[in-house]
């Protein structure tokens, strides 16, 4: 199968993830969308690796997975503590980051 198709799939997944981040308010969904974008990147990286016959892309994919795992740990902790403080998982309720 033509590896370029994987790239199209990756772009599609990334777009879905990005749209989710921009549109949805629920922090958990937001989080999942971010994961989707990361995984879209992974897919692209592995596809490139295959296309160019070079292992660099696969190695970076592993790095990305580690980062994603770390991100989940930290992110979930933040979401849980936010939920405890505000009784809501909506990101728009946490808009203190302004002047």
């Amino acid at each position: 199968m033509n590896p370029v198709n994987y790239l199209y799939l990756a772009a599609l997944l990334f777009t879905i993830g990005a749209a989710g981040v921009l549109i949805r308010r629920n922090a958990i969904i937001l989080f999942m969308c971010v994961e989707l974008m990361l995984n879209a990147c992974n897919l692209a990286l592995v596809a490139f690796s295959r296309m160019h016959g070079n292992l660099d892309g696969q190695i970076i994919a592993f790095f990305t997975m580690v980062v994603a795992a770390a991100e989940v740990v930290v992110g979930l902790a933040i979401i849980v503590s936010l939920f405890r403080a505000r009784h809501s998982a909506s990101v728009d309720d946490a808009s203190l980051m302004k002047l």
Partner: peptide, 17 residues
């Protein structure tokens, strides 16, 4: 310009994208 800085994480994300 300050008004752009509204604190909504998603609007920051829009400008990033």
């Amino acid at each position: 310009m300050r008004k752009l800085q509204n604190g909504f994480a998603r609007s920051y994300a829009v400008s990033m994208f």
